[in-house]
Design a protein around this nucleic acid. Structure first.
Lengths: 349, 349
DNA sequence: ATTAGCACTCTATCCCACCGAGTGCCAACA
DNA sequence: TGTTGGCACTCGGTGGGATAGAGTGCTAAT
């Protein structure tokens, strides 16, 4: 992208103005608001050029210009400068993220809610990807004949459990034996290295008759696998309706419809995360407009950061807002929430 | 409410027509659609009367009539007849409520989702009110120094747990002792009869030094109290935007804003439930329009039924939809989902 | 009690004219 | 070659005015 300095400034100004006014910006109003030392005609030429490059576009012939997806992208990649939040804003966020909760999940929900409140957009977080964390404890508790609770404590300070069905005839002692054997052999193993086979070999030594044993082991395995399933937390969906960008109802409907399928959104975030490998940037993922492949999000931007529960266990937190957003501001807000989250998470590990 | 037969029929017809067309209904179109053996002028007189009684109203001078809240109320109380769902519809619901889940919570979420899909409205359910269920098991598991997991199995087949902080120095054995003492003394007690004092006396016999013991007992008590806290599950909020009744955006915004505060909604459902004491009806609660004290729900109706996990443990499930709904249909849908839910719940108790 | 007839009311819709912001282009200028 | 003033043109948005249509209330007759 070869742009001389003034053209860069023009694009910058157009994005800024459009973001703050929500109206296509014309050459004249550009002169009025900014200190360009040239005439409006010159800017018109520049704008024609920028339009030719696909960085801006006009809604109709006789309107001003608005940034295209590509224009926003250029803005985000090379034009904007990010500033720290003011102490007031920082304090506000710190206050909101209540640190007295007992479980990581609550902390994450808390941060997500805070992020939605401070940005005014929809926020979301993924639960930590636990596949790299390892088992610290595994207990199977009899609940009643035929039913047991598998409780797992993971290295990342997370506790997971699952109710499972077991054969009716099994005694308390038998369960304890199996539970002990699994724990003894699998403690220290990362979740993603635990397979059904691993669990079955772990349970070998116990003197429990074959078919019964096998069922319990299978259930234990299922519980372990469920523990590293990903959850997504969405917050502030209703804020979409407060944004002028989605006043058209049709757009809002599509967007909310898509967001209501949280599994789909989670899948998309995962895809993004996986595609990040070649990431040159510092853990931020930004998708703008049509770059987002989810239906109904063409007018949105999707920005996430990566938080860390431990070195190897991380998740994502971010927002979905209109393309027309104050990128630098929102990014610093996400960044600050992420940092605060990381700090608070140390308590759990 | 003294209405001669024809006036009742007129009101009935107005509600039906308005619900299906979403347009104020006039005397003439009433004649066209229904077999009234009188002229439109006569109906006009009747309608003037109904309006005088506050059962219908007109949006403006030269428009047809629409039912008022009071009109809908009369319709619901004495006019409509409820029919069973068709076998097809029943099957559809039965199929959707997946019965293979392992936890009551999942079953309830499932039913809520199904209800939203079949009615096309927002659906919601309250978690079971567990205060009448009793403790069947209580175990405290050490997770790491300073942290433990309290696991409770309740009579209603529900498992609850909570991570709690405990003094660092406590050993595994000490925790086991305390856990055993609590379980021994509190098993069989309904949750609402368990107080901090009860827990403390239960823990008396253990040979654990005073201040440490006291803290653990307090945490155990807190865990028990948390177990009977109510949760609310909302589903299908986005469907609001598909309803012509909320096409005005402002209304939709208010409604979604209110629903986003799920605690508030839960509180309201509870209020309704408590006010139901004098209930002559068969467990349905219906609130129409202004009868609902939640902000932004003036154009809605709120209908819930009571499901039962056990004789003494129940919760609510229902929908929030526009006042202009097919009451009889929606009520049978809720009723059927509730019955299916009750049936499935027997597996857990 | 019911009906036909009539004057009246009010909204929704369409049409049209006009305003204004903005553009593209051209010719002139530094 | 880049910049500027000027100008004709475009197009969406706004507001007024006319019209159609559905519905009402009232009155007088049955």
């Amino acid at each position: 992208m070869q742009l001389d300095n003034r053209k860069k400034e023009v694009l910058h100004a157009i994005v800024d103005d459009y973001v703050s006014t929500n109206e296509p910006v014309g050459s004249k109003s550009l002169i009025e608001r900014h200190n360009f030392q040239v005439s409006s005609a010159t800017l018109r030429n520049d704008m024609a050029e920028l339009e030719h490059l696909g960085l801006i576009e006009k809604p109709h012939t006789s309107a001003g210009r608005i940034p295209s997806d590509k224009g926003y992208r250029e803005y985000v990649n090379s034009l904007m400068t990010i500033e720290e939040l003011s102490p007031r804003e920082q304090l506000e966020i710190e206050k909101r993220i209540d640190s007295s909760v007992d479980e990581v999940t609550d902390l994450i929900k808390n941060a997500t809610h805070t992020l939605s409140e401070t940005t005014g957009f929809v926020s979301l977080a993924m639960s930590p990807r636990l596949k790299k964390s390892f088992l610290k404890q595994l207990k199977i508790l009899m609940i009643e004949p035929g039913k047991a609770l598998v409780v797992m404590v993971l290295s990342a300070g997370v506790v997971k459990d699952k109710v499972v069905r077991i054969p009716n005839f099994l005694s308390d002692e038998q369960i304890m034996k199996i539970s002990g054997a699994i724990e003894k052999n699998l403690t220290g193993k990362p979740l993603d290295e635990i397979t059904l086979v691993t669990v079955e070999t772990a349970g070998k030594g116990t003197e429990v008759p074959e078919p019964l044993l096998k069922q319990v082991l299978y259930e234990a395995y299922a519980a372990i696998k469920q523990a590293d399933e990903l959850n997504i937390y969405l917050d502030g969906e209703h804020r979409i309706l407060e944004l002028p960008d989605f006043s058209s109802l049709g757009r809002a409907r599509d967007l909310l419809g898509t967001l209501s399928d949280s599994g789909m959104v989670a899948g998309y975030v995962n895809e993004m995360e996986n595609a990040r490998e070649h990431g040159t940037d510092d853990s931020f993922m930004i998708r703008i407009g049509q770059e987002i492949t989810l239906e109904g999000l063409d007018d949105c931007s999707f920005i996430t950061a990566t938080y860390n529960l431990t070195d190897s266990v991380s998740g994502n937190i971010g927002v979905i807002g209109p393309k027309r957003m104050l990128y630098s501001k929102v990014i610093s807000q996400i960044d600050f929430v992420k940092k605060k989250l990381n700090k608070e998470m140390q308590r759990f590990t």
